[in-house]
Design a protein around this nucleic acid. Sequence first.
DNA 1: TTTCATTATATGGTATGCCAGAAACCAGCG
DNA 2: CGCTGGTTTCTGGCATACCATATAATGAAA
Lengths: 228, 228
Amino acid sequence: MVKAQLEVQPIEEVQSLKSRTYEALKAAIGAMKIYDANAELRLDERALSLQFGVSRTPLREALAQLEQEGLVRIAPRRGIFIVRKTKAEILEMITVWAALESMAARLATEVASDAEIAGLHGLVDTFDSADIEVHMGEYSDANIRFHAAIIALSGCKLIAEITNGLFTHVRAIRQRTIFEQDRARRSIVDHKEIVEALETRNGERAERLVREHTLKLRQHVDQFVQLD
Amino acid sequence: MVKAQLEVQPIEEVQSLKSRTYEALKAAIGAMKIYDANAELRLDERALSLQFGVSRTPLREALAQLEQEGLVRIAPRRGIFIVRKTKAEILEMITVWAALESMAARLATEVASDAEIAGLHGLVDTFDSADIEVHMGEYSDANIRFHAAIIALSGCKLIAEITNGLFTHVRAIRQRTIFEQDRARRSIVDHKEIVEALETRNGERAERLVREHTLKLRQHVDQFVQLD
DNA sequence: TTTCATTATATGGTATGCCAGAAACCAGCG
DNA sequence: CGCTGGTTTCTGGCATACCATATAATGAAA
């Protein structure tokens, strides 16, 4: 039955200035190299309100949200500062990530379909024998997508949400992470094992592998990333 | 050498109205029985600003933070509503809790001192042979403190923070959870096993026990708590 | 009486102005 | 020349007024 009815799609929902300012600020901060020694971490309300073309009110509401999220710190009458996470805090984030993603892997073995799990091959096999040296950037992206995919397969929105929030912070120091090729190679091996565990519905093993894999990253960051 | 110097203590730091309003609102919402069928979920900005004796500006900034935290939803020009979590969301929270606390248990076996772990006995042994029937309330408190203690022992602030945030939500449906005595009894047995695993520094086992313990709660809530 | 269009009102959204505290600046004194 | 005390300026905190839209109230027409 062909219905010649009007194709109505959700009217352009113009969000409030507050939420748009929030998004813009978050993106702007994310794009900053805040861990550079000479990075300017201070924000100026009035200057920002001019740049964004909004008044201070919605801007301040957006800042309040970012403060709640831990991206900025508002010091009364002293200034608004982008928060630089300490190394210890970054390590804690990776630890939490490990806990959540390993749980996600376990859940995935219970709820994901075979087809969904099979889809992971696309994010792993590509780099089978490929020259990782040249495709480091691509690999890095695929790597992120692989982990995101596992979390998605768990069906747990909350894990995805929290994990995303952490990623906002961790992403900022990504540029300071030395991704040696050797580590990448070993990482791919890990990934394959993880996929296999998922395919065989071995929840216990999938959980362990993911946890150990992420804790390796923790160990690596602990050892090679200098922050404070 | 006796110094007759002025005993100075950090000056009473009066927080901003925004943060005090935030705390007050959060506490007020926490105290509400928001899952009662006839609960009023709508908040009125102007009314609140009168009740708190502040203008709408700091109040709205506090609300923006609560929205970020997921406690309220602000519908433009329609109202501000306290968020009722769905059962599925509650279950996800418990799942995340399981992931985090089990990781905390693992960490605790690595970083906590013997003395610290021994301190857990105070939160478990009390209810050894005691008549749980009568002390249900106390048990419930001790139960919460036990889990909080494990998280504290992990030394991971972030786990504590996230877990606290979840608790804010889960607490609200606590009153709807039927705590049968049988469940409490089995819970105590679990706790003892967990303490033992921690004492023997068996990280693998501690993690598993905590996870399974919390997933039992998940299962229980799934089965017996009616929300939607 | 019901329905629908119009009007009124309520409610959150935003802009603006003033205030208080902190930092920067400056002048005078030792 | 350096230190101290006061003054100016800068910056975020807060209150208030007005705006736009969603919803309720109203009344006229069917």
